[in-house]
Every structure is written in structure tokens, then in C-alpha cells.
Design a binder for these strands. Structure first.
Lengths: 235, 235
DNA sequence: CAAAAAATCAGAACATGTTCTAAAAACAAA
DNA sequence: TTTGTTTTTAGAACATGTTCTGATTTTTTG
């Protein structure tokens, strides 16, 4: 039951993998160009219908690519840090390192994810992985709380939600092209630092300030004014 | 020169208005359904080509609707507040009041704005209005800085950018359906409060804390756990 | 091995955003 | 009024995501 030994399921999984890898390779190659379902099917040597049978939508395929290519949960435990605040920012650097190390690839990915053409009730396609990631982050914030760096008066999940919104907004700006790749990690880092400092205890504040300064130095090279965010700034 | 008296320009403006109003009405009526360019052209009694001549893309039309329907810059100066911190949150309530008072309408709008199918170099379609809004917010943050509520060590535009990202992320979650309408204003308000508190002076902190508590009370009715953000949470 | 069930396939079909072409209309200038 | 320029128009066309249909292949089951 755990291992579906059925030959049918095996072939299905193999096809799934072929589709995901074809999608990944196509995005890597074309970069700028959006990958179309027809070329994707050709590349994966399946029919146009098959991705819809196996995934349901293009969005789901792209999400599968994103999950296949990232291994944050695997790498995260190996972060060598000295305290729970540092761990949060180390995790942030790790997570966003994927994006900045291969910007075109991930930008295309995110753009495709945001394109929700039509009534896709697909919504949260693979909750288990998302829940896992969320649990990791929640655990980090809770740890900082337990270590006395964050005040107990503000629940961790509220802090986490604010951080998540910052993440989403910055990724949106970046995917839309209004936030340059160089600014992505520092911008979100500064956002995290401000939010955490807003919830910090006197003990935690200096630890956070160190990261705040570091990120500010990182983006000091860019001109300060005119950083339009044509999505958020519209209100 | 200021007033293009040309009859040609007048007719153009009239058509533009007709298209924008038709789009607004269509979104209001169909709500759930995405408005299509063909039905939009029919409703506005113009050809399918005309919206493309006058606006360039569907995105631009929707953006024009958004600008037509909002009058934040007009209402903003009339806010009666006692200090510069209160003004920021009053402005936030004003801005997001639009969304929460007519959620279906604005959700459809935002969804259409996010749908960037194809290579639309339209990008920042109408910068003047956006710059105006940005200037308003930047002025508010600067004022709070000048009044001694925010520390001078963190530039205002950096604080503003963090706030803008929070806004964008929350609106994205809301438009995608993972953030309920009731939570929208308080969530962003809490995000603003945390960010501002992270940059606040001892004088400003208590003022911000008051709003933080108020927003927390506002969203206390909802269950705390399981607020999935299937965009941001994916990392 | 034969029948049944499940999946894939090729291809058409639909709705959509966008572009293009030629013709008609509206306007400005003489 | 005549001429010339600009804009709109109708309609086809293209690319795309998605769905559907019937035929074909593959796997399971008896």
C-alpha cells in the first residue's frame, strides 16, 4: 500500500517525472519565453492531454518543477549558526540564494505561477510540502521567542504572517521586473529585520540590528530613490 | 496646449471613458467571471481593436478602471488625526476600505492586473498617479521621522519599501483567495505596525503599539492557525 | 490467454489576449 | 468643397490554456 507496486502507477510516475524535467529544461533554455503546454508535451514525448491528466493544469506542473528543484528542507538543518536570530537570517539567505543564483529561471517560474488564467480551483496543490516549510519557519520564530529574543506578547504566527507577506510582495515585484535581482535578498532581509525588531525584546534587538546593517550595506550600491513597485504602489 | 481642443482628441477621450466605464460595470455585474476583451468591446460599443489602440492592453484598461474608481489622493488630506503616526494608520484604513467594502469587485480587478499573459512591456502604465501616491506615503513616513517617532538611522524610503512589500504580499494572498477579506486590513495593519515599531524611537513606540493592539483585536475572531499563503509559503 | 479496465493518444474544439490587414469613416487643412 | 491624414472598424489570424471525443494501447484481472 505504501509502495504502489502497480506497473501502471510506475509508468505514471515515470511520465510525471519526464514532464517535470522537460518543463524544467525548457524554462532553463528558453528563459525569457514562456513555456507552452504544446512544446512541453512534445519535449516530454507525451500527448498534450497527458499533463492535464497527471497534473491538472499548467500551474500545477510549474509548481511541481519548483518543488522538484528546491531542497530547502533538506539543506536547512545543516545551517551552522550561533543563535536563533542568526538562524532565521541564515535560512533567509539560503532560501533566496536559489532565486538570485538563477534569476531568469526562477523569474519565469514565478511568473507562470502567478498566471492564474481561468477558474483554477487547483489552489493549494501540494499542501504537505508547504505545511512543512511553514512549520520550519514557525519553529524558528518560536525558538527566537523561547530564547527571549522576541516578546511573548505577540504570537509567533502573526509575526510569521507579516514576514510571509513581505516575502510574497517582494517576490511579486521581482517577478514583475520592478525589483532588481541584486535588491531582492537585502530588501526582504530588511523587511524581516524590521518586523522582528518590532516584536523584539531588548535582548534580541542588537542581534537583529546587526543583520539590518548588513543588508543595508548590501544594497547601498544602488541609488536610493526611484524604486517603483508598480503593483504595491498602486495601492 | 493644456486643453486639447481638437475634436479628435475629444472623441478619443470619450471613447476611453466609455471603455473604462464598460469595464467597471462588467466587473461589477459578472463579478466572478473574468471580463473578456470581446464582451468589453461590445458593451462599450467599440471595435475589438479600439481598446488596444487607446490603452494598449487589457492590463492597461483594468489599471485605468482602478485609477478611475479610487480617489485616495483626494480623500487623504481630509483625514482628521492628532499625530503623524495616527495619520499613517488612518490612511491605511482609508486605502483598504475600498477593498473591503467591495471585495468581489476589487478582487477581480487585482486578479486581472496580476494576469500578465505574454511579454507585456506595458509595465508601469501610468507613472504620474503612482508617483503621487508614493509621494504621499513617503511624506507620511518622513513626517513621523521629523516628529521624532521614527529613528533617523533608517531612511524613510527603506521603511516605505518594506511596507509596500507587505501591502503587495497581502493583496496577492487576498486576490488569490487564501486571505479572507476580514483579515486583509488587520493583517496589513499589523505588518505596518511591526515594521514601524522596528524603526521607532522610544517616543513613537507606544503610539504604534496602540494600533497594533487594535488590529490584533480586530482579527481575534478568526482561528489563529492555518492561514495558508500558498504563494509566499512556497518560499 | 481472453475479457475488462484504465490510461494515453491524436486531434478537433473552445475561449481568450493580441496582432494584422484592408476598407470605411471622421476629422483637419487648403 | 476637396484633399490628405488619422482613427476606427470588421474580420481574419495566431498563440495559448483547457476540454472533449473516440480510437488505441497497456495493464490488470479472471
Amino acid at each position: 500500500m505504501a509502495d504502489d507496486l502497480g506497473k501502471r502507477e510506475k509508468a505514471k510516475a515515470e511520465r510525471r517525472l519526464r514532464i517535470v524535467r522537460a518543463a524544467r529544461d525548457l524554462i532553463r533554455e528558453t528563459g525569457d519565453t514562456e513555456l507552452s503546454m504544446r512544446t512541453l508535451a512534445q519535449r516530454a514525448e507525451v500527448s498534450l492531454s497527458t499533463p492535464y491528466n497527471l497534473f491538472g493544469s499548467k500551474r500545477a506542473v510549474v509548481l511541481a518543477v519548483l518543488e522538484d528543484v528546491r531542497d530547502f528542507a533538506k539543506r536547512f538543518p545543516r545551517l551552522a549558526v550561533s543563535n536563533s536570530i542568526d538562524r532565521i537570517f541564515a535560512a533567509h539567505d539560503l532560501a533566496f540564494g536559489y532565486y538570485t543564483s538563477d534569476p531568469d529561471f526562477y523569474r519565469t517560474l514565478w511568473r507562470a505561477l502567478l498566471n492564474t488564467t481561468g477558474p483554477d480551483e487547483t489552489g493549494l496543490s501540494s499542501p504537505e510540502r508547504i505545511d512543512q516549510t511553514r512549520a520550519i519557519w514557525l519553529g524558528m520564530v518560536r525558538a527566537a521567542c523561547d530564547d527571549g529574543f522576541l516578546g511573548r506578547d505577540i504570537p509567533s504566527h502573526i509575526v510569521l504572517q507579516a514576514m510571509a507577506h513581505t516575502t510574497g510582495g517582494a517576490l511579486l515585484s521581482w517577478a514583475m521586473g520592478s525589483l532588481p535581482t541584486k535588491e531582492l535578498t537585502p530588501s526582504v532581509g530588511i523587511g524581516y529585520a524590521l518586523i522582528l525588531k518590532g516584536a523584539a525584546t531588548p535582548a534580541g534587538a542588537p542581534l537583529i540590528d546587526a543583520h539590518l546593517s548588513a543588508y543595508r550595506a548590501q544594497r547601498a550600491t544602488v541609488n536610493p530613490a526611484s524604486l517603483p513597485n508598480h503593483v504595491s504602489e498602486t495601492l
